[in-house]
Design a protein around this nucleic acid. Structure first.
Lengths: 304, 304
DNA sequence: TTGTAAGCGTTATCAT
DNA sequence: ATGATAACGCTTACAA
């Protein structure tokens, strides 16, 4: 088979570069994508970058040198020179998953985070929340930027000034999310609601709420940005802004198959949907928070 | 690079065959394994079998033909002739993850499910439960067989007869688990506790409980067999039998690195740990269940 | 129709 | 030392 590929220059294999294989949302994108590629006679091999830009660049380079026929990737960062260089020097099709790399003309599957987050933020504002915290990864990633854009546009629509100290964009790590949640909730003027971007971020925030013994939808409201497999069954009944990972997988497969057949690079946009659930409630008055302990408040419908 | 591999016969790459990439526990095993292999200068490529034995055999064959230097796999089934044939005809090291394939002398990382499940079952029995349901995948997979073994040994230790109608071993699918949970809980003599093997199984069971409006730890007890990333933060406070996925990943890497250096095939066993949490309570008397609706009972501490 | 030879990019070997 | 050459296994083009 090596000889075959050596001779023909084709491997009938697509490389799928995951930023972190342990993110079940993107794992599902990969699964769905593989199914679609298989239907078209293509194999898919996956690499996981382990959240590390160097590993990512090495993996991309490895796939290129192994002469895969195309690459689909959810990058750790859009600003790593080595990564950009490998992608530019790659002559076969490249599909970016929810990423925009400056100066790289590649096909992409983009998610409309801004609309979902704008609606979610607007809902919180309309319920009287004013201090809404938002946590997501570095702004060197499109999803974080788009989330911030949606958040700010809801504040703008409502003619309310957004407080930058409520915006924490640095890492998708659970530890970061927990620390920032603790900070936001124990501030002088604490946040009354949180938007948490991604699985680890939501997990970190929930750990912080548990530590503070706060009740969801009562002491604090929370909207998860992203759902993941079994979200409905395994997670406390969280409001969310979700996107369809099957659709993302199918779209990326469709794009690369098209390009292997000569189509030019284009973009597919995937919607996001805001769903209100029990984790949203009215804002708690600040005086109450600084007053008696949260334990004294009514039934613990959503004690985390 | 293709030419290099063609000439030298070595690819410095290990293939990792996942039964289902969307299972976050095994995704984490892969992540940890990759990290370890990378430290030793080896690359890892992942394939996902999508729960399908044919896809699995094709992926294994693909990796073999691509001349990977070794394969680590969590098989869909231990009884697929095509799969066994590919593995036998593969001259490089093979590591089985929690699997035993008859007639294949391969290294393996095995989890001691039986001990954990025995302790979990014993705890339920000691709290007065007699009708304990157990749900897991097909008995053509070692983990299911070991779980059953642990379950039966606890019943045996307590000198209580186990009812085969409470044992549902057929599929790791969430739909199957939901249907079986509904069956077990609406039977003439309903189960008062459940052991659910794996992520989708636990999710399916919880969906059924929610549909029946049952409260965990009160109307019914549940112990999840397996934890997964963020289990503590995102999942209702479930009792569990857990295993360390990082340890599994590191062990599989260690085994294959050893074999690439000439070591012979051996087995590493990974412990499981039973942890009691809020989802365990005393058994509900059957008369109560058939009597007033479950809604009338006390506080909904763990309403699902 | 069947068969033979060149070549893909790298490396190991052998001769200079 | 340095450089030429064959071979890895397969595809393809061209000849028989």
């Amino acid at each position: 088979m090596l000889a075959q590929s050596l001779r023909t220059g084709s491997t009938l294999t697509v490389g799928f570069v995951l930023r972190d294989i342990a993110n079940p949302l993107f794992a599902n994108v990969a699964r769905r994508c593989e199914r679609e590629l298989r239907r078209h006679g293509l194999s898919m091999v996956i690499t996981s970058s382990d959240g590390d830009v160097e590993v990512e660049a090495r993996n991309l380079s490895l796939l290129r040198r192994r002469r895969v026929d195309g690459i689909i990737c959810s990058l750790v960062s859009e600003e790593t020179p080595e990564t950009i260089e490998v992608l530019r020097s790659f002559s076969a099709p490249v599909i970016l998953l929810d990423r925009e790399v400056p100066g790289l003309e590649a096909a992409a599957v983009l998610c409309d985070h801004a609309t979902g987050v704008r609606r979610a933020t607007a809902e919180l504002l309309s319920r009287g929340h004013r201090r809404i915290g938002i946590l997501s990864g570095s702004l060197a990633v499109r999803s974080s930027r788009e989330r911030l854009r949606g958040y700010l546009s809801a504040y703008g629509d409502a003619d309310i000034a957004a407080d930058p100290s409520l915006q924490a964009f640095a890492s998708f790590d659970a530890k970061f999310a927990k620390a920032e949640t603790l900070r936001l909730l124990s501030a002088r003027e604490p946040a009354t609601a949180l938007l948490t971007g991604g699985v680890p971020t939501t997990a970190g925030a929930l750990r912080a709420l548990r530590q503070l013994r706060l009740t969801l939808g009562q002491d604090v409201s929370l909207i998860a940005l992203d759902e993941w497999p079994f979200f409905d069954a395994l997670t406390p009944n969280l409001a969310s802004v979700s996107r369809d990972s099957d659709e993302m997988g199918a779209a990326s497969a469709q794009l690369i198959i098209g390009m292997l057949n000569g189509d030019s690079a284009r973009t597919i946009t995937v919607d996001t949907v805001f769903t209100a659930r029990d984790s949203i409630g009215p804002p708690l008055k600040t005086s109450e928070t600084s007053g008696g302990g949260p334990d004294q408040r009514g039934s613990s419908r959503m004690r985390v």
